[in-house]
Design a protein around this nucleic acid. Sequence first.
DNA 1: AAGACGAAAGTGGTTGA
DNA 2: TCAACAACTTTCGTCTT
Length: 316
Amino acid sequence: MWAQTHLEVFKMPDYIKKCPECGSINLFWNKAKGEIICKDCGLVIEDKMVDFGQDWRDFEDGDKSSSRAGAPSTYTQYDQGLGTEVGQKADLFNLGDKDRNKFFRLRKWQYRISTAIERNLKLALAELKRVSSYLKLPASVEEEAARIYTLAVQRGLVRGRSMESVVSGALYAACRRHEIPRTLDELSEASGIDKKEIGRTYRFVTRELGITILPSNPADYIARFASSLALSAETQSKAVEILERAQKSELTSGRGPTGIAAAALYVAALMHGEKKTQREVADVAGVTEVTIRNRYKELLDKLKLEKEIKKVKKKK
DNA sequence: AAGACGAAAGTGGTTGA
DNA sequence: TCAACAACTTTCGTCTT
């Protein structure tokens, strides 16, 4: 019962669309095992998807405790709370000398196997937390990023790249997937990694992991830009409306989403008499005035907004 | 004097041969 | 792998408020 309710928390991650090995989209999700398997080539694409909590079992003597407990596993902990320790300290008192030696041997052993990947993860996730809290990202995004990073490590994608850049790339991807995009500039500022580098690893990682990224929607930027410009809610919704119209006129395809969002905001501000300079808007949006001007001009041309703006001017 | 506008040249990334 | 290309930037001169 417990396991059932918990299984539902873990859905098939929808960004895994195809097998990274053979490209097949013929995937099978084995719920019970928590694996996603490519039916064509048999590759196990994802495991460790299901949280059974800390599933302690005593290997030393079978019936001691069968407690199944623990918080949902989380990727923001480097071993996902699933680390297996050989034996428990209390057991020591029940062991004879022979067994005690065995106990220590096993411990040492398991310590050695795990170190490489886990040590990397531990460091990386600390960095990830730092950056994400700097950007005030919600926990869900952080979780997603940690998950992406974990996958990347398991796939050996970090090799040859700095750990930090992969972390940033994972965060960037996670933001995009949660439709609360941050610009590369913001990530760059928060992490201290070069913007290009983040972009590169981001593309690389998403491609290698077969993560599908929806093209970011300019509207997702509006709220954030508007609030840092201290614009009213009406202006904000006007900007969104303008954006929708722009999208219908196919003004948005191929253009940088931030530029479009910035221009829409600029126009909306004009129409509500909350005039901001192009420079102000450009700064928060991370684009130049020129770009805003270009988008702005296109908006006026195609959407016939001139009248609406003139109305405002006349009122004054 | 500050902001808006536009032209021209440069940059980094994508695409298609 | 290279060249063409579109989007965006930088820079700068001119016009408007």
